[in-house]
Every structure is written in structure tokens, then in C-alpha cells.
Amino acid sequence: MMDAIATARVGLIAVFALLGLFFSFVSMVGVIRLPDVYSRAHTASQADTLGAGFGLAAVALTVGWEGAGFKSVLLLFFIFVTNPTAAHAIARAAFEEGIVPWTEGDDRR
């Protein structure tokens, strides 16, 4: 019984780390490929939240609660609080500077 739980834990660690890698990859592709800063801000905050969430879930499973699993929950909380704020600040700065959003038919920037 304990063996099954340990095996499931190890498997979940691997799955979560791979899922985190996948979503970060999506985020990277979006940041590189999307046409303007507003759409890049959207993909950065959205997919990167999932990537960091799964990556930190793998970390929390590895170190365990009696280790510093609490700290990885705290890490996730602060990423969830600060990342959207950073995306807002960047989009607001772009708006204040007068960057026009990309619409269909514009050049890729």
C-alpha cells in the first residue's frame, strides 16, 4: 500500500514537471510569435501561471510538507499575486506610451 503511494508520488512528480515544461514552452512560443506587446502580455501571464504552478507542484511533492513544501505554496501564492500586476504595469506602460494594438492586417512587430 505504501509502495503504491510512493510510486504514485514519484510518477506525479514527473508528470507535473513535464506539464510545467509544456506550459512554459507554450508561453515561450507565445512570447516569441505573437504580434504585439498586448497579446504577448496575455500569453505571458496566462500560460506562465500554469507552467509555474505545475513546476512548483512538482517541487512541493518532492520536498514534502515536513520539508519546505509550505514555502513552495507561498512561492505560488506570490507568483499569482505579482505576475498579473507586472503584466498590468507593462500593458499600462505600453498604453501610456501610445503603442497601438495590433489589428488584423498590420505588420508583425
Partner: peptide, 25 residues
């Protein structure tokens, strides 16, 4: 634009948080 650069470095920072956490684990 500068906002693109800051955005990329911000995403890099989140990535680094995950990297550091994975290293610690």
C-alpha cells in the same frame, strides 16, 4: 519596444523562480 523587453525579462524571472525551486528540491 521596451515593454516587450521588460515583459520577456519578467517571464524569465518567473521561470527562474521555478528553476531555483527545482534546484532546491
Amino acid at each position: 519596444t521596451m515593454q516587450d523587453r521588460v515583459l520577456a525579462v519578467n517571464v524569465l524571472g518567473t521561470n527562474t523562480v521555478v528553476i531555483l525551486a527545482l534546484l532546491a528540491a
